[in-house]
Each structure stands twice: as C-alpha cells, then as structure tokens.
C-alpha cells in the first residue's frame, strides 16, 4: 500500500433523485480493487445516501443502499460523515446503514487536504 494514492470520494447528493450516488458507489468499488487508500466523505444531502430502511419498491428502482454494507468486504472502511450536515437533517449515527466516523467540518476539511485524488460526482 506504500505507493497507493489516497482517493477520497465526496458525496453531496441524495440518492434516487439523480443517479450520481449510485454511479459514484460503482467507482468506489472499482477503486478498492486497485488497492488504493480509499475513503468516502458524506456532506450535505449526501448523508441521506446512508439512511437505513430505504424502501424503493414503490418507485420501481433498485435499492442500492445495502452495497454500503458490502464496502467492508472490499476493505473500504473509512466512511466519514460531516456532523453539521447530519445534524441539519435531523439524523444521528443510529440512522445509518453502516458504521461511520462522524467528523466536524474542520476535521473533514483537514482530511480533504491530505488526499491525492478527490472525486465528486
């Protein structure tokens, strides 16, 4: 992993309204297969991607949220949620489908600075 780059995927969009969240997740899974240092950041409406209990039958769309739980199998374990974004949406860590690390804005900003590649969709 010494020559691996630090890739961060910044998610700021809610699921279903647009396809960005789903197609972003597809890139994350591929990146993990390249043995890179992968982390995911959830800011703004991106935190809604992680909400437990998504029921998509009524909109006839595939519920892709279980895939966040599968990230662990790909050794993607760095999932960061911005506290201010979570609070502003009335959510807590218990609302999420996976374990996450909650960071303050300042901590999130510092982490972004440390990345080699930051991708946002």
């Amino acid at each position: 992993m010494s020559d691996a780059k630090k890739f961060m995927f910044v998610n700021r969009k809610a699921p279903y309204g647009t396809i960005y969240a789903l197609e972003s997740l597809e890139v994350v899974l591929i990146t993990a297969a390249f043995d890179q240092d992968v982390s995911l950041a959830f800011l703004d409406d991106g935190v809604y991607q992680l909400k437990k209990g998504q029921q998509t039958k009524g909109i006839e769309t595939k519920n892709f949220s279980p895939a966040y739980r599968a990230l662990e199998d790909y050794d993607v374990e760095k999932l960061y949620v911005e506290k201010e974004a979570m609070d502003a949406r009335g959510l807590t860590e218990e609302d999420f489908i996976v374990d996450v690390t909650v960071l303050s804005r300042a901590e999130m900003g510092k982490l972004m600075d440390e990345q080699d590649v930051v991708l946002s969709f």
Binding site: I30, T31, Q36
Partner: peptide, 20 residues
C-alpha cells in the same frame, strides 16, 4: 472501456480535474 480506466487516470496523472 471500464471504470478501471478512471481509477487509472487518478493513479497515473499528476492532477485529475472533474467537470460536472
């Protein structure tokens, strides 16, 4: 081609710039 080509861009390029 596949998404691996995007990851490869991130690995091989000095800078990766996204437009969206």
């Amino acid at each position: 081609s596949g998404l691996g080509q995007l990851v490869e861009s991130g690995i091989k390029c000095d800078r990766l710039v996204t437009f969206g």
